[in-house]
Write a protein that binds this DNA or RNA. Structure first.
Length: 426
RNA sequence: GGAGAGGUGGCUGAGCGGUCGAAAGCGGCGGUCUUGAAAACCGCUGUCCCGCUUGCGGGACCGUGGGUUCGAAUCCCACCCUCUCCGCCA
């Protein structure tokens, strides 16, 4: 959500911002018209309310036998006020609906561009590993080493599910230990959040209304099911981590507050029929460790670089060759003002694939979720940032494909060996 | 799943149709006292919105949304949440 006052004061800047995201700048004009209408109605309604408040006082103070006359005249005023108020409410609803659809304008440093093809590679680290044999993809390796079972998962749950087995499970636990341990050392508090959330959590983080299609709705309430739970499965721990400070005011000295949340993530992948159908790259359920930071608005750009650097550190320690991609305006989601992806080279597929992603959401989520911090001037909306510390499924893919040997075995990355308890998977 | 209790300011908690933005206590800020600190005493101390604008005026907020009423923290309805007991289960 954007600040309406800011839109009033600086409509042109907001227009060019949402244009960069590929949205129609006329939206802003429409909003300003409604806003003006709303405020005019508000003044009228409040005048009538003021009148009512005064009259109520008088009625209370006047002797009983004189009350009825005053009450009669006030009945009319109340009727009038209710009518006006209803009109005002409708305008406000329309205005709110438009406001909640507005995306966060990108920062200056975000490149123009319509879609992912115009994202900018800003950094490449390491080199493509060379093999003296034809490297297999992760599915071939996973089946051969009895680590991934998609066939039985499809019997159980349908497409885009998988069983993780044997050393794949050990690798997952190793990654969790390794990454969480590292983040704790960097000052992050480890969290295991709830993954079923209420609708307001989805709105507060900006996933609704934009990405409603992507989210599983659990036991929806309806006429035929009035006792439904009406909960939603999170697609990322970002949602419940943000909710940790929903509707609250944080002490300035406590910022930045940094959390590392481990959770299972659920995604419908509704818009991606036929895309990445092989293997476990794009699945309905996976585990992920997510970083989340609540910070001072003046420091959020620096915080963003810090989160990116932590992601890079993990990539480097795992020995991956990767590139850092700066996402262009048209490819940014609604909440993000700026986003970096890290894409790791997958030898089995002969291409780079996204393993992590970190976003600066500036005040967008914080305003929707009403998260503020104390300043000398009063309470102000703070900034929120999030970043993938480790998407475990995709990291498994990268490990299998990059650490494979000619004989079909996979070497365990050095930093994980003490957790896995072996050097090689065979 | 069954039976209850309850959600009030940063916190504890009173109020249960008008004089209530709301007692009291704690905490916080400022002052007096003190060499300094503590104690004691005195004063101040919520958020949001709108209008004219150094200031002032108005409105809203007692879990959320409706309703009754001239008037609702207080009465009615729905929803959300918390707690206790019993049952069931990891």
């Amino acid at each position: 959500m954007l600040d309406l006052k800011m839109i009033r004061q600086n409509p042109e800047a907001v227009k060019s911002g949402i244009k960069k995201k590929g949205r129609d700048p006329k939206l802003i004009d429409n909003i300003l018209v409604l806003d003006k209408e709303y405020r005019e109605l508000l003044v009228n309604v409040e005048e009538l309310k003021s009148l009512k408040n005064k009259a109520s006082d008088e009625i209370a103070k006047s002797p009983k036998d004189q009350r009825q006359k005053l009450i009669d005249t006030m009945q009319d005023v109340t009727k009038k006020e209710k009518n006006l108020e209803e009109k005002m409410k409708k305008v406000k609803e329309e205005l709110d609906a438009m406001m909640i659809e507005l995306p966060n304008p990108p920062l200056e440093s975000v490149p123009e561009g319509k879609n992912e093809n115009e994202n900018k590679v800003i950094k490449t680290v390491g080199e493509k590993p060379s093999f003296d044999f034809k490297p297999l993809d992760h599915m071939a390796l996973g089946e051969r080493l009895n680590l991934i079972d998609i066939e039985n998962a499809s019997k159980t749950s349908g497409t885009r599910f998988y069983y993780l087995k044997n050393e794949a499970v050990l690798l997952e636990f190793a990654l969790v230990q390794f990454v969480i341990g590292k983040l704790i050392k960097k000052g992050f508090s480890p969290i295991i959040p709830p993954v079923l959330v209420q609708e307001k959590a989805m709105f507060g983080t900006g996933f609704f209304p934009a990405d409603r299609n992507e989210i599983y709705h659990v036991n929806p309430r309806s006429e035929t099911n009035p006792d439904g739970d009406d909960l939603f499965l999170v697609g990322t721990a970002e949602v419940p981590l943000c909710m940790l400070h929903y509707d609250s005011i944080l002490a300035n000295e406590k910022l930045p507050l940094r959390y590392a949340g481990f959770s299972t993530c659920f995604r419908r992948e509704a818009g991606s029929y036929g895309k990445d159908t092989k293997g476990i790259l794009r699945v309905h359920q996976f585990d992920k460790i997510e970083m989340f930071s609540f910070c001072d608005p003046k420091k959020s750009e620096k915080e963003h670089e810090l989160i990116l650097s932590l992601e890079e550190e993990i990539m480097k320690e795992l020995g991956f060759h990767y590139q850092v991609v700066l996402i262009c305006g048209g490819d940014l989601g609604a909440p993000a003002a700026k986003k970096y992806d890290i894409e790791v080279w997958l030898p089995g597929q002969q291409r780079y694939r996204e393993l992590t992603s970190c976003s600066n959401c500036t005040d967008f989520q914080a305003r929707r979720s009403n998260i503020r911090y104390k300043t000398a001037k009063g309470n102000e909306i703070l900034h929120t940032l999030n970043g993938t510390a480790c998407a475990i499924g995709r990291t498994l893919i990268a490990i299998l494909e990059n650490y494979q040997n000619k004989d079909g075995t996979v070497t365990v990355p050095e930093v994980l060996r003490s957790y896995v308890g072996k050097e090689k998977i065979n």
